[in-house]
Every structure is written in structure tokens, then in C-alpha cells.
Design a protein around this nucleic acid. Structure first.
Lengths: 170, 170
DNA sequence: CAGTTTAAGTCAGCCTTGTTGACATTCCAA
DNA sequence: TTGGAATGTCAACAAGGCTGACTTAAACTG
């Protein structure tokens, strides 16, 4: 254990923003906020035979249409067996379409179908609504801080993945 | 779906901080950051017969020593059967002690043993180290924004629980 | 005091989602 | 043509959620 005190070079104000107590509060805030973050989509999904894993797959396929299975694997950080179980049900249920690659026919390119986009919309509308309210209540400066801290919290590899996705966005 | 545009009353700067693209980036940042957030304790726990659920129980028992089972249930938001499975192993392994209540003998008050505190220390050191680095790199203003947004993201009930814990801290 | 409610614990069974390991298929590239 | 890469599949398992049913003991209440 350390003494919980840390200094800032920023001239004295907020000298104690790195005490163990502050860090603990940050940890607990993360725990509770993540529950809120997933609560709305979870509620929608609990009515169907789907779970959070399906939501994640749908989100990132929508995000990067035509992505390969391997690419999705890296983004999600799970095994191919785990992802495959999820993808199989989504394909069977007609929410995702898997197309053999043109340049490399070993690869499968993944797309959402009409139905898939419809579900994606329902899920992300709910999640965005919460995020929007939180962002609006907190204000632009807080949002900037929020994202700065989150980015610093990622592993290097995740951070690269996140940046790549971010830059590929509008 | 909405048009993704939102106005801010703050005079024009950052007019677009509530576009769907910004919200999506916030959602993805949350996803990746939470993985980083849990990665270090997960690594430690994977060597033992414990998982994230044990970590959470240990964290909050350490946080509020003498808490009752029911109270812990409300904080963690799981069923008593789920929590009981975790608590039973922790008690059997001598990391947690359960004492019959004095005023109300139906209640059990939970405490970490010496060994329990030792494990708690290992786990939270790892998690705090990451949080500390992230906080230090981001700076005090970003940290304030981070916590403002996270609090706004919680459900009302969670937020109350979080506030109560926060105020009971040093 | 009798009856009800509450706190905790337990048993059984189910689901989702992660894991390993083994193995088949297809196809690119050296 | 052969090795390796990408994908898919099968089986088995574990963690950690869930529901439902039930017990015990203590506390509360009419």
C-alpha cells in the first residue's frame, strides 16, 4: 500500500485529486455507471433470446459494415468459438448476413440485414438516449474530460482499436 | 431515430458535442475503458478459483465493514442466491468473516479477515494503479468531468447508493 | 400469545457467455 | 505442392447471472 497522497504539478490547486479516496470513488463510479450504461439495452434484449454479446456484435457490425470475423474478434476480445455461437444465431435469425470475401475467399464479410439494422436502432437509441442525457447534463467540458480519462484507462492495443474506429467515423 | 444534432446553450462553442457520432464514440470509449478497468484484477483472480464477482464482494465488504448481506445485495444488484455462492466460498476460504448481528440476530455482519484484506489490497492496488495513471495523465479538470458524466449515467437508485458510499468515505 | 414478516441460507435447475482442445475445410502464397 | 492462415464446428467445462421452492430463526404486530 502507498500513502495515497500524490502531488500535481499544476500549481497547488486540487493538490489531493489523487488520494486513494479519490481513486476509490473513481473506481466505484465506474462500476455503477457501467451498470447504468448497459441497463437499457439489457432490458430490451431480455425479452428476446439474445444477450449483451449479441448487442456488441450487432453494434460493431453496424459500425464497420463488411468487417471480417477475425477483425470483429480483435475488437471484441473474445475467442472465435464464443463469437461464432453468437454470430450463428444472428445469421440463422436473419439479422446478420455473412458474405464470402471477394479478394480473399477465406474471409467472411459481415453485414446487418434490414431486421438487423432495426434491432440495432432500437438498442442504440436506448443507449444513446441515456448517454445524451448524461452528456447534456454534464456539459461539453465534462464530456471532454470524461473521454480523456476513459482513453487513458484503455490498454494500448484497445486504444489503437478505438482510435481507428473513431477516425473511420463521420 | 433522430437527426443527431443537438444544441447547447453555452454560446456556440462545441455546438456539436451531442451529435450521434459523438455519442457513439462515448459509448465505444465506455466499452473499451471498462475492459481496461477490470483487466488487472481479472488477471490476478484468474490464477485463483475466484472471479469478478468475488472481487466486487471483497471490495464492498472492505469498503463498508460490518455491512449486512441484504445491504451488500442492494449495492451489487444481484440475487441472494448469486451472492451467497460467492460469499460461501469466501467464508470457507477464510477471507470473509460472518458475525451474527447484536441488535438484530437475523442479520449477518460481514468483515474481511487478515487474508481477505491481503487479497483486497492486491486487487485494488492493481486497479488503483491504472486509475491513478489515467487520472494523472488526464489532469484534475478531466477527472472532474469524468466523474460528472459517470454520475449522470447512473440510475437514480444507483446514484443514491454511490453518494451514500462516497459520503461515508474519509 | 399467535400469526406474519423479514433476513439469511440452501437446493435444484436453467441460461448466457466466456474458456480450451481437437479437428475439418478452404484457399493463399512461397 | 505444401505450409500456414482464416474460418467453422464439436464437445466439454466454468463463472456467474437468473427463477422457484423451501427452511430456519428472529422480530414485529395485532
Amino acid at each position: 500500500m502507498d500513502d495515497g497522497r500524490a502531488t500535481t504539478t499544476r500549481g497547488g490547486e486540487n493538490l489531493l485529486f489523487l488520494t486513494d479516496e479519490q481513486l476509490r470513488q473513481g473506481i466505484e463510479a465506474m462500476f455503477f455507471a457501467y451498470r447504468g450504461f448497459t441497463a437499457d439495452p439489457d432490458r430490451i434484449l431480455s425479452d428476446m433470446a439474445y444477450g449483451r454479446a449479441h448487442h456488441r456484435a450487432i453494434h460493431f457490425i453496424n459500425r464497420a459494415p463488411g468487417t471480417t470475423v477475425n477483425n470483429l474478434l480483435n475488437i471484441l476480445g473474445v475467442t472465435k468459438q464464443s463469437l461464432n455461437r453468437v454470430l450463428r444465431t444472428l445469421i440463422e435469425d436473419g439479422l446478420v448476413q455473412s458474405r464470402v470475401g471477394t479478394s480473399d475467399k477465406r474471409e467472411r464479410h459481415l453485414f446487418l440485414t434490414e431486421d438487423g439494422r432495426a434491432l440495432e436502432g432500437r438498442l442504440s437509441d436506448a443507449q444513446r438516449a441515456r448517454m445524451r442525457t448524461a452528456f447534456r447534463d454534464a456539459g461539453p467540458e465534462a464530456v471532454a474530460g470524461f473521454r480523456t480519462v476513459l482513453e487513458a484507462m484503455m490498454d494500448t492495443e484497445m486504444h489503437r482499436t478505438y482510435q481507428r474506429l473513431k477516425e473511420s467515423g463521420a
